[in-house]
Amino acid sequence: MAEENPWRAVNLEEGMEMDRQIGLLFFRVEMEYGELWIGYRYVEEEEASTGGANVSAPADDDLEWVRWSFSNPPEKLELQPYLPDKPMVVHSEYSQHILPGDEARIFIGIPATVRFNLQRKKEQHLLELSSEPLSRTWFGDRLEGELCYWWSTRARRYMPEMNKTQHRIGCPVTIKNSSDEELNFEKFSHRVTRLHIYRYNGGLWTDETQISYLGEEDMSEVIARGRLPKELQGAEKVTSPRDDAQRSFISRTFLGLV
């Protein structure tokens, strides 16, 4: 049986109750006395691997609840996949080496953020929850830097059917070593807030990012042109970037903690 689309909208009716799981995020939606309640918790990976089939629904008390009151109750709750709201420090299990003048294309799967929206006269955002719990990290030195999410990944070199899960977003990244020295890295900062999300063949993907390494002392040039990789031609756009600023910019990308 084909997996149902977990991103489908939820019809809100008085007295309704609905359970759903996206990734490791389990959530319950209830409408009671004109109030919308959303309760959530993260399930263990073992529970998620069974697709939630063998897991009994958690009791209300085990969930973290948020509620909204309305003068005019909404009829539909939309669920939209978004990229996380901070840059991701992508950590690879094995360090990668790129020789001067060479480049490598890698694919990273990043957990989608679930945005709960109401479609009324204008779109209203209620809540954002990551589909998998994300830990945070500091990227920079102890005096200045930025708060990022930490994500360990295998950083695949090919574009397989890697994105069968509907809660992970596949990000193609090309890293070019434009310096005179060898680039060795275990992690890099990926500015995902500037990327679009597309749906292709049931999976979620972002547009291509090109990172040009200019040397240890320099920052890197990051280009997010908003172009889809050639393998994903014809994909349907799902969401626009959170941060629609410059498409090409200079950023600290490979600098670790000093």
């Binding site: 420090v89 830990s135 945070r136 990290t137 500091w138 990227f139 102890r142 930490w150 903690l257």
Partner: peptide
């Protein structure tokens, strides 16, 4: 430390 929600992975 890894499971604490306030604790940073790095430093």
């Amino acid at each position: 430390a890894e499971q604490n929600e306030h604790c940073l992975r790095e430093p």
